[in-house]
Design a protein around this nucleic acid. Structure first.
Length: 159
DNA sequence: GCCAACGTTGGC
DNA sequence: GCCAACGTTGGC
């Protein structure tokens, strides 16, 4: 019996890697996460075929722009070993990698993005602990419950 | 560009 | 182990 699918939200800056970039390449290794909590969600929580809300931070309109899918189990982020990468980590070794990632596959782009402002308007239903809207939360990979997932996607075509 | 909030680092 | 300093995130 296969375990129930889980839901996530993953942030990216459109200047860095956008939903259109993901649509173009199809599948992308989610490099560059350097936060332990976010790493743990990818390494310990994610399973192939989990669904992902693709969020643009530092965008003209921050919000959810598309849907993606977890396309691999976790493996070491290769950029931690690359001395010339901005994600290089001198304390990571091949034997004991510090940073892990998953591959993320494009599913679809939303008809219209769901702006953060509209998401905030539903904070009561989403719950105050929802890490996306919790004050000061900066997690770039975070879990979404199935109820939150349903609610968020119901906002896709809201006015 | 500003800055609040938070995580990490490193001296002690 | 404490905590000040620093760097980063990310909305506005």
């Amino acid at each position: 019996m296969s375990p129930r699918k889980r839901y996530w939200l993953m942030k990216s800056e459109p200047e860095d890697f956008s939903i259109d970039d993901l649509a173009r390449v199809g599948t992308e290794p989610w490099t560059g996460v350097r936060n332990y909590q976010a790493r743990n969600f990818m390494r310990d929580g994610m399973r192939v075929d989990d669904e992902v809300l693709f969020y643009h931070s530092n965008a003209d309109v921050p919000g959810i722009y598309g849907i993606a899918r977890v396309a691999s189990t976790a493996y070491p982020d290769p950029t931690q070993f690359q001395a010339r990468s901005k994600y290089f980590d001198a304390k990571a070794t091949q034997e004991t990698p510090r940073w892990f990632l998953v591959d993320v596959a494009f599913v679809r782009k939303l008809d219209a993005p769901i702006p953060l402002s509209r998401i905030r308007a539903h904070s009561a239903e989403l719950g105050e602990e929802f890490a996306l809207i919790r004050k000061g939360a900066r997690l770039s990979v975070l879990p979404v419950t199935s109820a939150q997932w349903k609610l968020l996607l119901s906002l896709e075509n809201a006015r």
